[in-house]
Write a protein that binds this DNA or RNA. Sequence first.
DNA 1: CATAGATCCTGTATGC
DNA 2: TGCATACAGGATCTAT
Length: 293
Amino acid sequence: MPERPEVEVVRAGLDRWATGRVIDQVDVCHPRAVRRHRDRVWDFAAALTGSTLRCASRRGKYLWCPLDHEGRADGHALVVHLGMSGQLRVLPADAADGPHLRVRISFRDGGPQLRFVDQRTFGGMLVDELVEDGDGGRIPASVQHIARDPLDPRFDQRAAVALVRAKDAEIKRVLLDQQVVSGIGNIYADESLWRARLHGARPARRLSARAIGGLLDHARAVMGEALAAGGTSFDALYVDVEGRGGYFERSLAVYGREGEPCPACGSAIRRSPFMNRSSYWCPRCQPPPRRSR
DNA sequence: CATAGATCCTGTATGC
DNA sequence: TGCATACAGGATCTAT
């Protein structure tokens, strides 16, 4: 469930179900799920066993829970990225293994397990060192490079606008660059661009600061609305920790709506190839720059 | 250094 | 029915 609203829904569920629980056993069912955990000296399961999970945090699309050992912070965290198809599920210990179970975490209290399920295995988990984040907080070293998202109270919009304008690339590509602004993926990029009446192929450096500011405002608004609806779920692949989908799919204006009328002007929504997937846009509200599909 | 494109997977939907 | 192709909520590595 991969963009900021969906990841935040998962974070809240993780926080509610896992905080304060002591890990009893970790089973890695597919080694690829743990490929980013590079510390061979301290293997993934051993690093977690006996630790207590602290409250769940998030930066962009990354989640993590700091670890306590024997009642004190040990300077590490369990980090999770859902990738394209990852789920964190809270399931009773006696529930059957689903088809794409990658990691199972059991707790000392014998209560519901935390299971990482991931069809395409682009997601993963690791135990990583916590470092200073420059704002008085702590963040996993592997998440340091991720920018704040537009809904983050510490998001610096002026700085983000300047960063966007400094990029020599199409605006959609910049919007998806997690080091510039985080949390936005293919759905909310297209929805934000539509609301801002900008075509994704417009060069970022030729947009005014005002236009980029407006675009970020729309990104913030659409992701806020999506979060309130529990996120966007096209199918059972994208669910919260208790297996429930979100309802924002029916509020999407353009994403996945090729041929359907634009909610603003009625023109047929277009789809064009973009980075091995698709962009959806309205030909009248979002005129493409010349020499673009 | 910065950017565009290919790549890692597994499954479903669609067309011939 | 069988098979081939396209496509999917992402990040990262690689050529240029």
